[in-house]
């Protein structure tokens, strides 16, 4: 318990640093936001007035804490290019990306765990086939998989209509039906990695003494596998899976572009191109918070599963 509190403190501290770095980065950016808003032929008076209006004339730390305070309350500022609150721009997109992340994570877990066990348990040619397939799958960049999936399932088989994405709020299952393809593109390399991890974890455990002992006592191999080995072998995979969530969110930036999905990634990308810094800042910080949070949760789960870690 004490440990959890300490970890929680660490997490908050990391979040604070993250937010500070993000704020700092967007302060030292070359170019003045007033330029973006007013254009180049604005008078100095107009610029001054806008600076005061945006609060740019106050000291750095005042601005930082002011920004942070608003941020945690859900006020992410105003977009330069669309003059609307950033939170309004995010509201619809957050759900889409989250759904995409959840789908690809679910896919990863649902496929990789049975396949990993199968691979380790059966051995032989199946194991080898899976290993080779996995190795190749890991080398295919998700956006290339995405391109192939769009072509095969979108244009040849017509299982979905590329570009005809419906928001989850409008038609949830329609949305899922569309997102399953980008989710697959993101999940495939993750599945391959998790399978590999799980497989070597299980094989490592199977060679341990306690397994041999159990064996010599006449316990069934399957029983040992499911009763003892899995529990231990799964621990490193859980940590890995948690990190996957972080990567999935990052991977969505590219994948959303491939599948024309209006999510956080597309928003981030177009805001970067438009130099719409308040939006970029908000998306980046939210994503980083998300990653830190996920790592924290993974840590906690690990502790539950592996009592040894609690002592540290």
């Amino acid at each position: 318990m004490k440990h959890a509190v300490k970890k929680l403190g660490m997490m908050l501290l990391t979040m604070l640093i993250v937010s500070f770095l993000a704020f700092l980065a967007f302060q030292v950016i070359p170019g003045d936001p007033t330029n973006t808003i007013l254009g180049t032929d604005a008078t100095p008076e107009q610029v001054e007035a806008l600076r005061a209006q945006l609060g740019l004339d106050r000291p750095f730390f005042v601005r930082y804490f002011d920004w942070l305070f608003r941020f945690v309350q859900g006020d992410f500022g105003t977009s330069y290019s669309y003059s609307m609150p950033v939170s309004d721009m995010l509201s619809g997109k957050l759900g889409v990306t989250l759904l995409l992340a959840v789908l690809s994570f679910t896919l990863t877990v649902l496929v990789s765990i049975p396949v990993g066990i199968l691979s380790a348990d059966c051995g032989g040619w199946l194991d080898k086939a899976l290993t080779v397939t996995g190795q190749i799958t890991m080398a295919v960049p998700p956006f290339f998989t995405g391109i192939l999936l769009t072509y095969l399932f979108g244009l040849i088989l017509h299982w979905f209509t590329p570009g005809e994405f419906v928001a989850p709020g409008v038609d949830f299952w329609g949305s899922v039906a569309y997102l399953i393809f980008p989710a697959t593109a993101i999940a495939l390399p993750r599945i391959a990695m998790t399978v590999k991890m799980l497989r070597s974890g299980i094989l490592g455990e199977l060679n341990k003494d306690y397994v041999r002992t159990a064996h010599s006592r006449g316990n069934d191999r399957k029983a040992i596998l499911y009763r003892h080995v899995l529990r231990n072998a799964v621990v490193p995979s859980v940590a890995f899976l948690a990190m996957t969530i972080a990567d999935i969110v990052a991977g969505s930036v590219v994948i959303e572009q491939v599948f024309a999905i209006p999510g956080m990634g597309r928003l981030l990308f177009s805001s970067i191109s438009n130099r719409d810094y308040p939006v970029v800042q908000a998306v980046i910080v939210l994503m980083a918070f998300w990653v830190v949070l996920v790592n924290f949760v993974a840590d906690m789960i690990n502790q539950r599963l592996d009592p040894r870690l609690r002592l540290q």
């Binding site: 980065a25 030292v28 990052a250 981030l268 830190v292």
Partner: peptide, 22 residues
């Protein structure tokens, strides 16, 4: 290391995106 942890919290592609935007 704390700063390092914080920086690694940004997936590297995102970090690169931010740098490119700057």
């Amino acid at each position: 290391m704390r700063v390092n942890d914080a920086v690694t919290a940004f997936p590297s592609i995102l970090l690169a995106l931010v740098f490119i935007s700057l």
